[in-house]
Amino acid sequence: MPSAPSESSAAASAAKPPLPKAELHLHIEGTLEPGLAFALAERNGVQLPYATEEDLRRAYSFADLQSFLNLYYALMAVLRTEDDFADLADAYLARAKEQGVRHAEIFFDPQAHTARGVPIGTVIGGLARALDRAQENYGISTRLIMCFLRDESAESARATFEAARPYLDRITAVGLDSAEVGHPPSKFREVYALARAAGLKCVAHAGEEGPPAYVWEALDVLGVDRIDHGVRSMEDEALVARLVADQVPLTVCPLSNVRLRVIDDLADHPLPAMLDAGLLVTVNSDDPAYFGGYADDNFTAVRDALGLDEAALRTLARNSFRAAFLDEATRAAYLKELDAY
C-alpha cells in the first residue's frame, strides 16, 4: 500500500486547489441538503416530519441501505416543479466546483417522482436548465443518466423508458439503483436492450450489498459500460481478472460504503487493494448530503484513512476522466489539465 503523506506534503496539498476530477456516481436527489429541503418545503407547502434542519441531520444515521432509502424517498416530497429540480442541480454544481469537479455524470430517479404525480418532463426539464448553464457558470461539463429503481418491476422500468423517449437527446445513459439484494440485474434485461438499441450507454449498481454474481450479470446480461460500486468484486478472483482485462470502470463511493455499513471502517476499505490489482477504480460521493462529503471530501478521506499518496490520488483522478462518457478531445483536455496540476 502507498505510504502516508508527510506533514509538509499534507500542508502543501491543503494550500492547493482540489485535484481536477470527474464525478461519475452522483445521485442528484442525494444532494438535497437540509437547508434546501426546508426551503423547498416552504415554497411548495410540504410539511416535513422534522422541526429543524438539525433534527433532520440527526436522522442521517443508517443501519443499512434500506434505512437510508426510506429517508431518501421521503424527502423527495419537496421536489415538485421545474424550478425545484433546477435549484437542486444548481446547488450541487456550485459545491462540485469547489471540490475540483470538472465533469459530472448525474443520476436521477424518474420513477421516484412520477409515482408522486410529477411528470418526467418536469424532472428532466428542470435538471436540464441547470446543466445547460453548468459550463458557463461553473466550468463543469455534464451528462445525465436515467436510473431505474430495481425494487420496482421490470414493467415499470420499461414504461419509464418509453415515457422518456421524447427526451433521450438529453440523456447519455441508463442506470440501475435502489435496493440491490433480491433484485438481480437480469431482471432488467429487456429495458437495457432497448436502451442500447437507442444508442445509450449503460451502467448499473452492482456488488455493493449484492454479491459478485450481480456484477457478472451486469456485465454479461445487461452489457454495461461501467459498474457502480463493485466493491464486493474483490471476493471473486475470476471477476477481478475479468474487470482488469477489460478495464471496466468501477465507480466506488468510500464514505457511502461506511455510512451504509457495507464496510465497517474506512481504514478497512479495499480501495488500495483494488488499485494494486489494476482495476480501473474511481472515487465518487454517491449521495453526499446524506453521507458526509462531496467528491474531494472522499478523496481527502481515503488519503487520510488509507495512506494514499499523491500518485495514487492522481491515478484515481486520471481514472475518472478515462472512465467518463466524453469525446476524446474533451477527455484529452481534462487529462492535460490534470497533468499540469
Rank of each mutant, 00 (worst) to 15 (best):
V181Q: 13
D264K: 10
V123R: 05
A323D: 13
V248C: 02
T251G: 13
S9L: 14
T142D: 10
L32P: 04
A329Q: 12
L56D: 06
A4S: 13
T160K: 00
H205G: 04
F68P: 00
V221K: 13
R129F: 06
E155D: 14
A10N: 14
F108N: 01
R95F: 06
P270D: 03
E53H: 05
P49N: 14
R259K: 14
P185C: 09
D225K: 02
Y214P: 06
D132N: 13
L222H: 10
S61V: 15
S8T: 15
H27P: 09
A197H: 12
D309G: 15
D236G: 07
L149C: 12
L200S: 02
T172Q: 10
A89W: 06
A22I: 01
L338W: 10
A245V: 00
Q111T: 13
L144H: 15
C202L: 14
F321D: 05
A128H: 15
D287T: 05
A311H: 11
R133F: 08
R196L: 03
Q111F: 09
S178G: 02
T172N: 07
G207Y: 00
V118A: 05
G292A: 03
H269R: 05
D169G: 15
Y50I: 10
T81E: 07
A12W: 09
R43A: 08
Y138C: 09
